[in-house]
Every structure is written in structure tokens, then in C-alpha cells.
Write a protein that binds this DNA or RNA. Structure first.
Length: 361
DNA sequence: GATAAAATAT
DNA sequence: CATATTTTAT
């Protein structure tokens, strides 16, 4: 359906489309300067352009267009990794599920009790696990608005094109859960829940995608700040802290895995194996000059903006500073009892319905 | 039981 | 805002 509309729209605004394409190409040029930092954007724009062109000129196989840079695959350095095995699961919120064949076994069980709680996850379809429903193509995204026109079109384009091709067809409803609003789940229930630990926010792919997008617009994860990111994401209900936390994780994660886009082919720059990670010569040099001191990890930033964690050499493992063993000092401190508060497993009652906090991500 | 992810605390 | 720590879910 959407595609139809989309199509229709196109015809009626051919001119605008041309302009759009031009604009996109401009964008692409800019983005291409930082392929490493904006892989996703690049991908997005490229796809959009392609789609637009197809729309404009009918199905023309113009693969020619692709001005280079494909290596875009790298994006999402961190989502994809988690393979299905673990099954991230957090779909609800925007109920990703899209992930193609995801679902499977993972769901089922959880869905049961989960379903009831699911205030968010309006999408009934997901509920039924009939896998068959691929329906991946073009899902109507009922986002609560807050979307920019261009954006929408881009995404639409993506879907149409089935961009990802192979691996993650990521289709599906993106709905960033705008409405969701996890805090204070029910109006009905007592609001006095006070203090309740916040319901975990699940960073669905869509959400993360937005996050990345924002990041890109802000010039990388190191320069972006939570607030800015949040604003750019335009996802309502999303808090600064959440973004902050996610950003933190993201940074951590990215520095740890500098993307191994080893095209099998030993590029031009062979990597060194330092400690237990690979680093490029330049980076290594940088490290050397930096003369690390701590006995732990030293991160160096490379010219490209990528971080590489470097473990100080074992050889000179000088101070073996014990990591934080602060956990328990000697029992000297009698007052350290702290919040040992019994876990209150008290529930002798057979019903094991733990986690009163219906959460789950 | 280990670990990743999110929440919360500095 | 950045990091560190703690809690929670897998």
C-alpha cells in the first residue's frame, strides 16, 4: 500500500524528485568523506538515491551509479554481532521482530505472560507467531509523527528496495515506540509506585538506528552528547539518561571492536597484534609515543577517529594493580552490612512469579 | 554462573 | 556530561 502511495506521489512530483535526488547526491558526497564514521548514512543515502532513480526512470538496472564506497556493510558495529543465538529479544517496544527470521523459538514462551504486559507493542501481527507472515515489505509505520518528510521517504525507499538484501532484511515496522511511554505504565494502577526502578528500555534496532543516525549528524560518538542525540532522535519518551547509557555502551563497544572490515585481503595496512588486539601501524606508533602508564587499558585515538584499546605489554607488567577489589574490603567494617537486605526469597508460596516488575526487555 | 545491557550513582 | 557502579535479564 504504502508503496503505491509512494509511487503515486512520485509521479506527481517528478521535479521535486529530481531535486531530491540531487540533494541526496550532495549529501552523499559529503558523507563519503567520512566513510568510517558515517557508514550507515552512506548506505541510507545510496539506497535512497537508487530507489529514487528507479522510480524516476523506471526499472533501470543502473548499478553504475554507485559511486564507489561500498564497504558500507560495516555499519552497526554493534548490533549485528549478537547473533540470533542469544536472541536479543527485545522486540516489543518497536517490536522489531522484523528481523526476518528472528522469532522462532525464542518468543513463544515469553510471549505468554509478556503479552499481557505489553502495553507497548500495539502490533497484533507480531503477537501471532505465524512465521509465514513475512510481510516484510513496506510496513506502514505509524509513528507518532515527529518524523521528517525526507526521512520517511528514505525509509520507505529502503523498504521498497529491500536494501539489505542478504542478511538483515530489516523490514518491519519501525515505530520507535513513540507512544509507549514506559514510565508509569498504567494510569489505573497506583501511581505511587514511586521509586520503582525504571523499566528497562529496550534498544530495538530501529531505535538504535535512530541513535546512530543522530550520532552521525553530530559527527561521531565521541563528539556527540546525550542531549543532542536525544533531540535528534526525536523519539518521545526517550530520556537523556537512557541515551547516555546507550552512548556509553556504544562507545565502549566500538572501541573494543574497531570493526574488522578485513576484506580478507590484506589491505595496504597490515595490522599488528598488540597484546591481544590488532592495531594499525599508525595507531601503534601513537601508542608508543603515548607511553602508557596505567597497568590496564590505554585507548588511543587514531587519526580516523577510531579507538583502539591497547593492553599494556605484558612484559613490563609493572604494577599489577589489582583491579578494583573494592567490593569487599576486609570485614573489618562492621557497618558494611549495607543493603544486604535479605533477598527476600521469602515467597514460600509456590508461585514463582518473581519479577513483580513485569518488565523484561 | 557469566555476561551483556540498562539504570543509577558519582 | 562522562564514568563508575549496581542491578537485571539472558
Amino acid at each position: 500500500m504504502v508503496s503505491m502511495q509512494f509511487h503515486h506521489k512520485m509521479h506527481s512530483h517528478k521535479m521535486e524528485f529530481r531535486d531530491y535526488i540531487l540533494a541526496l547526491e550532495e549529501e552523499k558526497k559529503k558523507i563519503q568523506v567520512f566513510p568510517r564514521d558515517l557508514p550507515l548514512s552512506l548506505e541510507l543515502v545510496t539506497q535512497a538515491i537508487e530507489t529514487c532513480k528507479q522510480q524516476l526512470f523506471g526499472t533501470q538496472s543502473e548499478c553504475s551509479e554507485q559511486t564507489s564506497t561500498d564497504e558500507g556493510l560495516v555499519f552497526e558495529e554493534f548490533i549485528p554481532i549478537k547473533k540470533r543465538a542469544l536472541s536479543p529479544d527485545c522486540d516489543e517496544n518497536d517490536e522489531e521482530d522484523d528481523d526476518d527470521e528472528e522469532q522462532h523459538s525464542s518468543h513463544k514462551m515469553k510471549s505468554d505472560w509478556l503479552r499481557s504486559v505489553q502495553l507497548w507493542n500495539p502490533n497484533p501481527s507480531s503477537a501471532k507467531e505465524d512465521v509465514p507472515r513475512k510481510t516484510n515489505v513496506v510496513e506502514v509505520k505509524r509513528n507518532g509523527g515527529a518524523f521528517q518528510p525526507f526521512h520517511k521517504e528514505e525509509i520507505a525507499a529502503e523498504k521498497d528496495n529491500a536494501l539489505e538484501s542478504d542478511k538483515a532484511p530489516t523490514s518491519s515496522p519501525q515505530v520507535p515506540a513513540t507512544s509507549s511511554t514506559e514510565p508509569v505504565p498504567e494510569s489505573g494502577s497506583k501511581k505511587d509506585d514511586k521509586g520503582q526502578r525504571k523499566q528497562r528500555r529496550c534498544w530495538s534496532q530501529e531505535l538504535h538506528k535512530r541513535f546512530l543516525h543522530a550520532l552521525q549528524q553530530l559527527g561521531g560518538s565521541n563528539s556527540a552528547t546525550p542531549k543532542q542525540i536525544r533531540e535528534l532522535m526525536k523519539v518521545d519518551g526517550l530520556t537523556n539518561d537512557e541515551v547516555k547509557s546507550h552512548l556509553q555502551k556504544f562507545r565502549l563497544h566500538t572501541r573494543r571492536s574497531p570493526i574488522i572490515h578485513n576484506n580478507s585481503n590484506s589491505h595496504t595496512a597490515p595490522m599488528f597484534l598488540v597484546g591481544n588486539i590488532y592495531v594499525q601501524p599508525q595507531e601503534y606508533a601513537a601508542v608508543a609515543t603515548k607511553t602508557t602508564v596505567s597497568g590496564e587499558l590505554t585507548t588511543v585515538t587514531t587519526p580516523t577517529g577510531i579507538y583502539a584499546p591497547v593492553a599494556t605489554h605484558p612484559s613490563s607488567t609493572t604494577t599489577v594493580i589489582k583491579p578494583k577489589s573494592k567490593k569487599f574490603e576486609l570485614s573489618e567494617n562492621s557497618h558494611s552490612v549495607e543493603r544486604v537486605v535479605a533477598h527476600s526469597n521469602s515467597p514460600a508460596s509456590s508461585c514463582s512469579t518473581h519479577t513483580p516488575t513485569t518488565s523484561r526487555c
